[in-house]
Simulated assay, not measured.
Amino acid sequence: MIPYGRQDISQEDIDAVTAVLKSDFLTQGPAVPRFEQTVSNYCDAKYAVAVNSATSALHIACLALGVGKGDVVWTSPITFVASANCALYCGASVDFVDIDAQTYNMCPERLAEKLAEAKKIDKLPKVVIPVHMCGQSCDMERIYKLGQQYGFKILEDASHAIGGRYNGLPIGNCQFSDIAVFSFHPVKIVTTGEGGMAVTNDEHLAKRMRVLRSHGISSALEDMHERSPDEIWNYQQIELGFNYRMTDIQAALGNSQMVRLDDFVTRRQFLAMRYESLLSNLPIITPIQRANQYSAFHLYVVRLKLSDTNRNQREIFESLKDRGVIVNLHYIPVYRQPHFEKMGFLAGYCPKAEEYFSEAITLPLYPGLTEFQQDQVASSFEMALS
């Protein structure tokens, strides 16, 4: 059986975790700030805040950006539900911007059109969350210019994209955003088991996210409310926060994985290019990579040319699974989920997203995938299409 994604754990990773297990700190020790520094250095961002999941990072990032009741947050429909849920957690409402038909990222043209209409009725978004689908960056420079024009904040959901580059610079440098968020789930580029990270160049945002990840508690003297000098106050809860901390065990694994990040992405790039050759004669559309992009290739999504085959998407999907190739679908448009349909969203709301949904299949891609296994995937795919 060939999974669509899989972690790559080395002996060095195991040794790093074992060292923490033998140390004095399993959580809130030196490994977490060391991991934060590693990621911020890699991305060329000033600050990094480690948390227990990318979902948590999205949540506290929205709060740090001031999202609350009465606000609207826009994101892509082709993403995991967390990209939209983070706005709902804050009491805000959410809306969706249709995708670019080639990259599957938020379409800047649709965004510009939607912003112009929203301005007419005074319903502009507080925050826009572009999602770097499959590991390729959105067109962040264009989105940033729209942000300057219309006054919204930008939160990059880069959960798929650590190790990728945009305009020659590392994704996560926040040149065109306020905050960027990474995921370290086991099938992502690097893993901490579960975990996430928010990076920013804004000291105030970083400080606010650190407080929010730990119950809203601060030990900084400048945050403390004045109390009796006879009482011991070594920390204070200054607002309502959450238990979103990352452990030292997770951070140690993350630090060790970061050593191989560039190797992981290079391998993913190689396998993606090899798929391009192996699948060239099949009735499908393979992923494109823009000239100013270097995708982390977290996912390898193909689109079926269903008019050129006598089988439908589900039949092809099930046929591959029956042959031991565990494919997936990334993603069902978020607004088609029952929870969002209850809010009033209807089928057809984002036409390009729904066209994509009806044709997409995610093939296996991860560093440990061998060329022999990849040949098996290609052969099985050809048979499933026939």
Rank of each mutant, 00 (worst) to 15 (best):
Q7M: 01
Q7C: 00
S10A: 00
S10H: 04
I14A: 10
D15Y: 00
L26M: 03
P30E: 11
P33S: 06
Q37K: 15
N41R: 15
K46F: 08
A54I: 00
A54N: 14
A57K: 10
L58K: 12
A61W: 11
A61T: 12
C62I: 00
C62D: 02
A64L: 08
S83H: 10
G91K: 13
S93M: 08
S93V: 07
S93I: 05
D95W: 08
F96W: 07
F96M: 07
Y104T: 11
N105R: 13
C107G: 05
P108C: 13
E109K: 11
E113N: 12
L115N: 07
L115D: 07
L115E: 07
E117V: 06
A118K: 02
I121D: 14
D122F: 14
H132A: 11
H132G: 04
G135D: 01
Q136E: 15
S137C: 15
S137T: 14
D139R: 09
M140E: 15
G147V: 07
Q149N: 06
G151N: 09
G163H: 03
G163A: 03
G163W: 03
G168S: 12
L169S: 12
P170C: 02
G172T: 01
C174R: 00
F176P: 01
F182D: 00
V187W: 04
T191F: 11
G195R: 00
T200F: 01
N201G: 05
D202V: 02
E203I: 13
E203P: 08
L205R: 08
A206P: 07
M209T: 06
R213D: 05
H215T: 06
G216I: 09
S218W: 04
A220M: 08
M224I: 03
H225V: 14
E226F: 09
P229D: 08
I232V: 15
I232Q: 14
Q236C: 11
Q237A: 00
E239F: 10
N243R: 08
Y244D: 06
M246P: 04
D248A: 01
A251H: 06
A251T: 09
G254D: 11
N255V: 01
N255T: 13
R268V: 02
F270W: 13
E276L: 10
S277W: 04
L278C: 11
L282Q: 03
P283A: 08
I285W: 05
I288Q: 09
A291Q: 14
N292K: 09
F297L: 02
Y300S: 03
V301I: 15
V301R: 10
R303E: 13
L304A: 08
D308V: 01
E318V: 04
S319I: 00
L320Y: 01
G324V: 01
H330K: 05
Y331W: 15
Y331F: 15
R336F: 04
P338K: 09
H339L: 14
H339V: 13
E341T: 14
G344W: 03
A347L: 00
A347H: 06
C350S: 06
C350D: 10
I361D: 03
T362A: 08
E371F: 13
Q373Y: 08
Q376K: 10
V377A: 10
A378N: 09
M383E: 10
